[in-house]
Simulated assay, not measured.
Amino acid sequence: MNNELLTGKNARLTTKNEESPDARGTSPQNITVVLPAYNEEVSIGSIVLLTRHYSDSVIVIDDGSSDRTARIAEKAGAHVIVHEANKGKGAALKTGFAAAADLGADIIVTMDSDGQHNPSDIPKLVAPIIDGYAEMVNGSRYLTHQDKNTPIYRRFGQTILDTATKMNSGLKITDSQSGFRAFSASTKNVFRFKARGMAIESEMLADAGRSGLRITEVEIGVRYDVDGSTMSPIKHGLGVLVMVLKDVEFNRPLYYFTAPGVLLWGGGLTMGVSFLHNYNAVGQGLNFGPTILMILLIIVGTFMALTGVLLHSMSAVARKTEAA
Results as ranks from 00 to 15, higher is better:
A164Y: 14
A164Q: 14
T165A: 13
M167A: 07
M167N: 02
N168E: 11
L171E: 09
L171V: 03
K172R: 10
I173S: 07
T174E: 13
T174D: 13
D175V: 00
D175G: 07
S176R: 00
S176N: 03
Q177K: 10
Q177L: 13
Q177G: 03
Q177P: 00
S178E: 07
S178P: 02
G179K: 08
G179L: 09
G179A: 10
F180E: 05
R181E: 04
F183K: 00
F183T: 01
F183S: 00
S184K: 06
S184E: 06
S186N: 09
T187I: 07
T187A: 12
N189E: 15
F191W: 06
R192W: 00
F193I: 01
A195P: 00
A195Y: 05
M198E: 15
M198A: 14
I200H: 13
I200K: 08
I200D: 08
E201T: 10
S202F: 04
E203K: 10
M204D: 11
L205T: 01
L205S: 08
L205R: 04
A206H: 06
A206Y: 04
D207S: 07
D207H: 05
A208S: 03
A208Q: 02
G209Y: 02
S211K: 11
S211L: 07
S211A: 15
G212F: 12
R214L: 12
V218D: 14
V218K: 12
I220K: 04
I220D: 08
V222E: 13
V222S: 13
R223D: 02
R223V: 02
Y224L: 03
Y224M: 06
D225I: 01
G228N: 02
G228I: 00
S229I: 04
S232M: 10
P233Y: 11
I234N: 12
K235N: 15
K235G: 15
